[in-house]
Design a protein around this nucleic acid. Structure first.
Length: 408
RNA sequence: GCCUGGGUGGGGUAGCUGGUUAUCCUAUGGGACUGUGGAUCCCACGACUCGGGUUCGAAUCCCGACCCGGGCCCCA
């Protein structure tokens, strides 16, 4: 019986892992420098955490099962809900704002394609306790810096749900949600049909289409004209001016809706080329989930970076790790083990475990791209030394083990 | 769930208008060169996704299943 990995999963070999680790560490460093602390939540949660947040509709795309105690459990499909759950469970009374970052795998039962897997990785941050434009701006700036830190540059689109919602304030909430979904999908035809179906006033209809089409420099004055001089517009303008302070390039895009009802204010998405249909590498916004989960109403803002997607497009080359191979002869194998043990305190060190002859050990060192070889022979040992050979230049010198260790 | 392309040793391939032991490259293990790597030579290893059908005969043609990729739907 031969086994295959389940559909939509991947094995990561050492070369690729080195690259992934490198990128992961870069992102971590940025998050840490901005003062965010790492958190980790369980791989599985109670299913209600996600159905309450996202609706029963997600059941079809979720990995769930009953455990032996009869609990409905699901592998987490995302990390925002668990973070908020954790916050309510143990951090509600801690000083605000709370700033967290996380990097973990998530699971969704979907049809795999380029940049989409059933087990995938998200790197995200959440800031809990502030509803101010300052935190919105910080979150956006942080996301851009993270991506830049690994050489990824994308198109940043920033919107605000409060503006469209203000326009729709007289439409029943259920219809609002449907409208937001259609807006998010950029399904103009569907949106028009739906508005006709619910007999939305022509005035609102016209304004909505103009509003969600707004882009660029004149977007805000026009938005003000369409929905009036309301508070959220001022807030959004404050946010935009802060983005300028951060020196960010962005596009105002009131057509971003991010489908779900608990997003309340700022929303943003970052798109990249070269990813096929799945071109969004980062998405986030401000939301209010805490009260939905039984906590006090608490504003939060966050985003998630699609780690696998940035791995597809980022061009990073981790520095080749230095490694040396200790080569020995039949009569010096034991000495080689002792010497390798000493060298491992400083550098990745290989020693033969295949019973290979001297020459084949050299050949192996070459195959794995060793930078140096330490030759442990009787002659050298009798002089209290070993030979250190540089595999690039071919030069070879006699040194004590301590001298070799010192060079590494 | 839908549309579309594709499945030949570990990786990459030839064969695919049917016909002997399925080609070549590479990788891997071993050997030669006997204390100095990359080269060369030799040996070994190792594949037609599965099941039906057509046929004297199927990797090849037909059908189905499974799997993989890409695109829809969805995208928390």
């Amino acid at each position: 019986m031969e086994f295959h990995r389940p559909r939509g999963t991947r094995d990561f070999l050492p070369d690729e892992m080195a690259k992934r680790k490198y990128v992961e560490n870069r992102l971590r460093e940025v998050a840490i420098r901005w003062g965010y602390g790492e958190i980790k939540t369980p791989t599985f949660e109670h299913i209600e955490l996600f159905t309450i947040k996202s609706g029963e509709g997600i059941l079809g795309e979720i990995y769930n099962f009953k455990d032996k105690g009869g609990r409905e459990i699901t592998l987490r499909p995302e990390l925002t809900a668990p973070v908020v759950r954790m916050y309510i469970e143990e951090l509600q009374r801690s000083p605000k704002p709370l700033k967290f970052y996380y990097f973990d795998n998530c699971f969704r039962y979907e049809r795999p394609q380029k940049g989409r897997f059933r087990e995938f990785f998200q790197f995200g941050i959440e800031i809990i306790g502030s509803a101010r434009p300052e935190s919105d701006a910080e979150v956006i700036a942080l996301s851009v810096e993270m991506l830049n830190s690994v050489g990824v540059r994308g198109d940043l689109h920033v919107g605000h749900l409060g503006i469209v919602r203000a326009l729709l304030k007289d439409i029943p909430p259920g219809h609002q949600s449907k409208i937001m979904r259609l807006v998010d999908k950029k399904d103009d035809k569907g949106l028009e049909d739906f508005l006709d179906e619910i007999r939305a006033p022509d005035e609102i209809k016209g304004k909505l289409f103009r509003l969600i089409g707004l882009r660029g420099i004149n977007a805000m004055p026009e938005a003000r004209e369409l929905v009036g001089n309301i508070e959220v517009i001022s807030q959004f303008e404050t946010l935009l001016s802060l983005l300028d302070v951060y020196g960010l390039e962005y596009q105002v895009d009131l057509g971003i809706a991010r489908g779900l009802d608990y997003y309340t204010g700022m929303v943003f998405e970052i798109y990249c080329e070269g990813l096929g249909a799945q071109n969004q590498v980062c998405g986030g916004g401000s939301y209010r989930l805490a009260q939905l989960f039984g906590g006090e109403d608490t504003p939060s803002t966050g985003y998630a970076i699609g780690f696998d997607r940035i791995m597809e497009i980022c061009e990073v080359k981790p520095a080749e790790a230095k490694r040396i191979v200790v080569v020995s002869f039949e009569d010096t194998r034991k000495e080689a083990i002792v010497i390798a043990k000493r060298l491992r305190e400083h550098v990745a060190t290989y020693v033969d475990v295949m019973g290979r002859k001297f020459k084949d050990q050299m050949s192996y060192a070459n195959t794995i791209g060793a930078s140096h070889v330490v030759i442990v022979g009787r002659n050298e040992l009798e002089a209290g030394k070993v030979a250190l050979k540089d595999m690039k230049t071919g030069e070879q010198v006699l040194l004590t083990v301590e001298e070799v260790a010192g060079k590494m």
